[in-house]
Design a protein around this nucleic acid. Structure first.
Lengths: 219, 219
DNA sequence: CCTACGTATATACGTTTGTCTATACACATG
DNA sequence: CATGTGTATAGACAAACGTATATACGTAGG
C-alpha cells in the first residue's frame, strides 16, 4: 500500500516515475471549480481530474474518492478561516469592538474570490456523513475559540457571563446562518446584513450579561 | 399550452385520455424518496417517475423539471410547518411557555418519519437559485409570524422589546441552524439540544428586553 | 545497461441521466 | 361508430459518470 501521501514526504528515496501532480494541486483544481453556483458536493472525479490536467484514474493515487477530497477541503477552509478571524479578534479588547471587527472580517470572506467561507456555509447540510461531520468539527473549533475569548473579555471588563459555551455556540451558528443567506444576496446588501448581525450578537451578549447580573434561574 | 395543472381543476370537460397520476402523486413519490441521507436536490427525474410508476416523459406533463417540483415541495413543507408551530404557539401566553412549547414542537418534526422540516433544513444552502429563494421565503414567513407574536407578548406582559424583526430573525435562523445539526445526531441527543436552544432563545429575549429597559444606544 | 517499481495514461464497460421523436391509448364529442 | 384530442408510453440518443484492466513511461538501484 503506497500510503496516500505527497511523494516528497518522509520517504527518502522515491522509486519509480515521479508524481507529476500533488494532492495540493488537486485541491487547488477543485477550489478553482467552486463558485457561487457550484458546491463541493457536486464536483465529479472526472471534472477535478480534467481541471488538474491528469487522467481520471490518476485521481485515485491521491484520494480514495471525491468525498475524501471534500473533507480535506473543508478542513483547510476551516483552519484558514479560524486563522483569519482569530487575528482580527485578538486585536480587540472590548466586546463592542471585538464583535464588530470579527463580523466584519467574517463578511469580507464572502468576497467572490474567497472560496473558503462558502465551502463551510454550503456544505454543512448536504453530502455524506463524513462531509457534514467535518463541517461540524470546524464549527466546534470556532465555538471553542470564541468561548475562551468571551470568558477572557468578561474577566477584563468585569461583565458577568453565564453558559459561556452556549453563548459561543449561539453566536457561531447565528453568524454562519446569516452568512449563508448573505452569500446568495447581491454584495450591496452585505453592509445591511452586517449591521443586523452586530445587533443580534449584542443582544445575545446583553442577554447573558443580564442573566449573570440577575442570577436568573434557568428553568 | 396545456397550462400545467391538475386535470380536475376548473376546466369542466376533460378531453382525451385521463391523467393516471396527479401533481400530488408525484409530490408524494418524491417525499417517499427523501430520507436522512437523501436530499431533494439529488432527486433525479427518472427516479421520481419510477417511484410514481409512470414513464419518465410523463413527468413533464406536471412539472417543467425537478427544480420546479423541489420548489413546490419546499413551499408545502414551509406552510405545513408554519401551521404546526403556529398552533402550538397560540396556546401560550407567556414568553417562557411559548418559547419552550414552540421549540418542542419544532424538534418533534425531526422525527424520522416527518419529512417536512428536513427539507427546509437541508435545502437552504444548495441547489438552484429558485431553490434557495423558496427556502428563504418560507423562513421570512416564519419570521413575520414570530415577530407579531413577540410584539403581542411584549404588550401583554409589559416587557419592552427593541428591533422586534431582528429578534424574530435571529431566533428563527438560530433555531433552524441548531435543528440542522440535531438532524444528523442520534435522537437521544435531541433533548439536550432542545434545552440548549431554549437557553439560547431566552438569552436573545432577555437581551432585547434589557436593551429596551436601558434604552441602549445601538451603535 | 538493464531491471524493478511506482506513476500516469489509454481504452473500455456498464449505468444513469435528461430529453427527443414517434406511437399507442382512452375518453368526450359528433 | 367514427373522430379528434390530450395523455401515456416506448424506444433511442448522446453525454457524463465511476471504475476496472491493461499498458506505456520515467526514475533508482543493481
Amino acid at each position: 500500500m503506497p500510503e496516500n501521501s505527497t511523494p516528497g514526504g518522509n520517504r527518502r528515496a522515491p522509486q519509480g516515475r515521479r508524481a507529476v501532480i500533488s494532492r495540493e494541486d488537486l485541491i487547488a483544481a477543485a477550489l478553482s471549480l467552486l463558485g457561487p453556483h457550484r458546491s463541493v458536493s457536486t464536483l465529479s472525479l472526472r471534472e477535478v481530474a480534467r481541471e488538474a490536467g491528469i487522467a481520471p484514474n490518476s485521481f485515485y493515487r491521491h484520494f480514495r474518492d471525491t468525498d475524501e477530497l471534500a473533507v480535506v477541503l473543508i478542513e483547510e477552509a476551516g483552519s484558514a478561516l479560524r486563522r483569519i478571524i482569530g487575528q482580527s479578534r485578538t486585536r480587540a479588547t472590548t466586546e463592542r469592538s471585538v464583535v464588530r471587527s470579527s463580523i466584519e472580517t467574517f463578511m469580507e470572506q464572502l468576497n467572490p474570490d474567497e472560496k473558503f467561507l462558502p465551502i463551510l456555509l454550503r456544505e454543512g447540510t448536504v453530502g455524506s456523513d463524513a462531509f457534514k461531520q467535518a463541517v461540524e468539527e470546524q464549527l466546534l473549533y470556532f465555538e471553542e475559540e470564541l468561548c475562551s475569548d468571551l470568558v477572557r473579555l468578561a474577566d477584563i471588563n468585569n461583565t458577568g457571563i453565564v453558559h459561556a459555551p452556549l453563548v459561543a455556540k449561539a453566536i457561531t451558528r447565528l453568524v454562519f446562518a446569516m452568512g449563508a443567506t448573505a452569500m446568495d444576496l447581491p454584495e450591496s446588501e452585505h453592509p445591511r446584513i452586517l449591521e443586523e448581525m452586530v445587533v443580534m450578537v449584542r443582544m445575545i451578549i446583553v442577554g447573558t450579561q443580564t442573566m449573570a447580573r440577575e442570577g436568573a434561574k434557568l428553568n
